[in-house]
Write a protein that binds this DNA or RNA. Structure first.
Lengths: 151, 151
DNA sequence: TATATTTGCATCGTGTACGATATAATTCAA
DNA sequence: TTGAATTATATCGTACACGATGCAAATATA
């Protein structure tokens, strides 16, 4: 029995599980909006700035086109976005919000607080969560650079 | 523009991205073993204790049978585990390591240190990572209880 | 003890993730 | 300027995740 292979010693398993649990926590809040969690992320990117290229969204969410293209196609079918071929550069695809997609922001703005409310008075202080965010940013920065080192 | 909908303010997005990046970091280490990251988790559970029920593994990894059953079937086809119907209780399925599955532990024991080595001298101290783990545990504990409150 | 309920697992359908490959538009180079 | 590399997306195949449903074995109940 190797100590380093114990599940409880795996930071990665914690992050993996926390990620799934958070997505599940979002589900009941996003279902009324007709969004999955990854789609909600795309919408946040577009609410921040409309009319973005597929590549822009890829960069922002750190997802590749092989994940985003089908997702955007589903969102287009749902009437949330429109995909138009680039005029200047014919290879590009521009993603824009529809009126429906824009309106959804009003409903979505309640989602974050709904999720946070459930965590009030439960022992996690804001300070802990800020530190969590900072450490994750550091960790991701490292993984970003070590990944590049492999090329 | 609602401040609470800014992507950079989303703790969940950080955890979601960190989880994907970590899985990607594991990939080149696990590929020689013929394992995906979720399969590696199953193997860790079985290396800790052989001959476990599907339900035991589900509980440990917080995954449902609709995820694990197909995964275990693939692993059985790869010759890593054997699934046998429970004798005492005919509904149960017992998952056991094959000789090949056992042997894999010897190779796998190098994986965690390989991953950690790349992070040496990069600014994240062990203390930060321990705090990260603690906060995540607290967070998951909260989500566990608030989820139950919905029933 | 016959039937209703529960339990443990499997199956199905949809939506991500992601490596690999394809394709068309653009740019580079000879 | 024409063919070769590059770039921006798209498509394909495989493997998760997970809600919903199915099913047989076990248990509870009348």
């Amino acid at each position: 029995m190797y100590e380093q292979l114990r599940l409880d010693n795996q930071l990665c398993f914690r992050i993996y599980t926390a990620s799934r649990m958070l997505t599940q926590a979002y589900r009941p809040l996003l279902e009324p909006l007709g969004l999955t969690y990854p789609q909600y992320l795309v919408m946040m990117v577009l609410w921040e700035k409309d009319n973005q290229l597929v590549g822009d969204i890829c960069q922002r969410l750190r997802l590749d086109t092989n994940t985003l293209t089908p997702m955007l196609q589903r969102m287009e079918k749902e009437g949330l976005v429109i995909r138009t071929r680039g005029i200047a550069d014919g290879r590009q695809t521009l993603v824009s919000l529809t009126r429906k997609g824009h309106r959804l922001e009003e409903q979505a703005k309640e989602v974050p607080s709904c999720l946070t409310r459930g965590m009030q008075d439960t022992g996690v202080c804001t300070e802990d969560l800020l530190r969590l965010a900072t450490t994750l940013d550091t960790l991701m920065g490292i993984m970003e650079t070590t990944k590049e080192g492999q090329h």
